[in-house]
Nucleic acid binder design. Sequence first.
DNA 1: CGCTCCGCTTGACCTGGATCAGGGCGCTGC
DNA 2: GCAGCGCCCTGATCCAGGTCAAGCGGAGCG
Lengths: 217, 217
Amino acid sequence: MPSGVDKPALQVLHCLVEHVGPFREGEHLFRAHEAFGAIFAVRGGTVKTRLIDSLGREQVLGFYLPGEMVGLNGIHPDHYPCDAVALDSVYLCRFSFRALETLAARIPGIQQQLFRLLSKDIGVASLLAGDFSADERVAAFLVSIADRFAARGFSTSALHLSMPRSDIANYLRLAAETVSRVLRRFQDQGLISVAGREVKFTAPQALRALARNVLTT
Amino acid sequence: MPSGVDKPALQVLHCLVEHVGPFREGEHLFRAHEAFGAIFAVRGGTVKTRLIDSLGREQVLGFYLPGEMVGLNGIHPDHYPCDAVALDSVYLCRFSFRALETLAARIPGIQQQLFRLLSKDIGVASLLAGDFSADERVAAFLVSIADRFAARGFSTSALHLSMPRSDIANYLRLAAETVSRVLRRFQDQGLISVAGREVKFTAPQALRALARNVLTT
DNA sequence: CGCTCCGCTTGACCTGGATCAGGGCGCTGC
DNA sequence: GCAGCGCCCTGATCCAGGTCAAGCGGAGCG
């Protein structure tokens, strides 16, 4: 959990934290419509959230990297509004929400932190709502993933994508073919170098320039 | 404020509520980057939230009808992330957020209500993120507005749009011309009847069918 | 009255990205 | 070994919706 929670609060937190995992690729942390009971912090691996609509089509809603929280958006309707699926081997901390909520009433730090996390998710969701070009979307996706890894101390010049192209495409509301073509073109333009799921940033500034309109939203 | 807050809580609430308005068409409730201090409940009129990007282009983020809350998404960064502009004559209740937050720590009802409202906004934001056709978007927009008016006891068979076509189009990430054409076609198909900003629903079920994929997300 | 302005509509055309179709490569299992 | 299967790439075609350009009608106003 990010800063803003002091030492004593953290100790109390330990009482209601439970280490869970590993989940294997394809396994569910929770499913849509299940009763809402807990939120999860990713310790290792990657999680995607998604929705299956009435026609059986998948809608990818988000990716969660180590250090990030999954499941917050289940608070309102009191049940999870989406599936959460492991993309590789995933390790988690499980926070019982009932206990957390009670605790939040007494420790202002936690309450504020929850408000912050919730409010932040709204911003991220609206990130994809704009009408951006395929180039802007893909650039913003790469920059966003890179920044989030960087915030956890990982390399800033290269990254490993733990999801297939089809998930990226679905998340960005593009066709998989388009993602493929854009990545190819970025490579031809010298912005990145791609080998399967490994990406190196060769001109990070130029990539950021492309992503700017999307991310400053 | 919706149900879920009991009588005594409401009385305490009255201490920190302030009636403000009227705001005239085009006036700002708050602007992006201003310090976050309060959330607002619309009593009358319509508010739009929007963002002006670095190139000066407007992005409409949402519309708020009587009975709805504006400004919640300012909690996280501690300043408002968007402008809020009156579309007609707007009357509001202003809630100081500092006081509300302190109060929330003591009265569980309020805290839960805030969590619910925040969490609900996430859902609404992701409503526009999907890749839907122009028809689906326009239908969903009309149904959504109608339902929200209906929830406040207004007519279910007709409504008045208080925003220009260009705002609707911008919000739905379409061109104004497209909105115009879709409305025209809906009318030709007997789904609605349009006269300027007045809309009558002549085949509400068919319209709902079109909107279903978008709204059940 | 007639004028201009602005929101709205309509038509003609263009284009970014979806779709369709095919092919390669690296798994795993036999 | 090779067959089968995911995943990924690439080219050819198509179309929804954007863009451009032009009228139209109501509101404010000299």
